[in-house]
């Protein structure tokens, strides 16, 4: 595993750590993409390339425009201006279902498991090019039975990998939050994506499942040949699984690089903590300030009582 991670990161070794840096083999290229909601410019990305076959994290403070940028890329929202190329093909004005057909699949921040369909039906829905999904052929079972069996086999394989196979006939609505995330990811894989975009894959997942979810994400490039882009707030997660980090703030890309380079980046620190956070403070002043703070805190009962 470490060797493989190393090779993945190596691809990006010569890429400069600056916003809009060109990549050796980009699967997505975005140019001049802008989206305003009234007076608020939600997304204003001059240039961004996403390297094929690696895991890219998209981070940034709340309201940075990460999810809007996701929506623009996946066709769920349309940009005011700008172009995007996916896998060598211009995708401006493409609808979500067309993009999924090209191999770009996303998941959602709030899990969208189809609660009243069984787990296996959820999975089978993901498969592309189903004959039985067209109206007239659907009326004649022999036209789609074979394909349906193949799809089911593939679905079961994925369910086993994601340890959901024992739930196959349960309603998806009965799964726990973490299991739903797993199901959504497995379902996205049914589409056989070239690029899988995960919007906060760890949000609302209990710690016990986080690790297994992370392992699944980490293995996507090698096992599925998929490029991964994900939005995440948890820096431990970002450090653990990303090969490359893109930082957004106020709609713009403000930094790029491996996670090790991001922590020291002045623009990133400013974006997260405010530009004047490190204004020099006299040590005495600081002590004073902390004391006052503690006094105030002392008035309220402690938040956590150890048993």
């Amino acid at each position: 595993m470490p060797a493989e991670t190393a090779t993945r990161a190596d691809v990006l070794a010569d890429v400069p750590h600056e916003p809009g840096a060109p990549k050796p083999d980009p699967i997505v290229v975005v140019d001049g993409m802008r989206k305003a909601f009234g007076g608020l410019i939600a997304v204003d990305v001059e240039h961004l390339e996403i390297q094929r076959g690696v895991i890219t994290a998209l981070i940034g403070p709340n309201g940075a425009g990460k999810t809007t940028f996701f929506n623009l890329l996946t066709g769920f929202d349309s940009p005011d201006t700008g172009h995007a190329v996916f896998d060598g093909q211009a995708i401006d004005g493409y609808r979500p279902y067309q993009l999924a057909g090209l191999g770009m699949v996303r998941t959602f921040q709030l899990t969208k498991s189809l609660t009243k369909l069984s787990v296996i039906e959820n999975m089978k829905l993901g498969a592309k090019g189903q004959r039985g999904e067209r109206f007239l052929p659907s009326l004649f079972t022999p036209l789609w039975r074979r394909q349906e069996e193949e799809i089911e086999e593939r679905a079961m394989e994925l369910l086993r990998r994601f340890q959901l196979d024992h739930m196959r006939d349960e309603y998806a609505g009965t799964l726990s939050g973490g299991q739903r995330k797993l199901l959504e990811m497995a379902r996205a894989l049914m589409v056989e994506p070239k690029l899988i975009m995960l919007d906060e894959p760890m949000a609302g997942v209990n710690p016990a499942l986080t690790q297994s979810l992370l392992e699944h994400v980490k293995r996507l490039p090698a096992e599925e040949g998929a490029t991964v882009v994900f939005v995440e707030h948890d820096m431990d997660v970002v450090r653990d699984i990303s090969d490359w980090v893109v930082v957004m703030a106020e709609g713009k890309i403000i930094a790029e690089g491996p996670h090790s380079s991001i922590g020291q980046n002045q623009a990133v620190i400013d974006a997260y903590l405010g530009a004047h956070h490190d204004a020099p403070l006299d040590p005495e002043q600081e002590d004073e300030w902390l004391r006052e703070d503690r006094l105030e805190l002392g008035d309220v009962p402690p938040l956590r009582e150890e048993p």
């Binding site: 996946t74 769920f76 609808r95 979500p96 279902y97 999924a100 057909g101 699949v105 996303r106 998941t107 959602f108 969208k112 498991s113 189809l114 609660t115 009243k116 369909l117 039906e121 089978k124 829905l125 993901g126 592309k128 189903q130 004959r131 039985g132 999904e133 067209r134 109206f135 659907s138 009326l139 079972t141 789609w144 349906e148 379902r187 996205a188 049914m190 589409v191």
Partner: peptide, 25 residues
């Protein structure tokens, strides 16, 4: 017949969550 076919599956998926169905192509 329609509702036990893949066509019905798509239609029911749209009932549950349209965006999820769109994201899956």
């Amino acid at each position: 017949q329609l509702m036990r076919s893949p066509w019905g599956r798509v239609v029911k998926a749209i009932r549950e969550d349209e965006d999820a169905a769109r994201a899956l192509g």
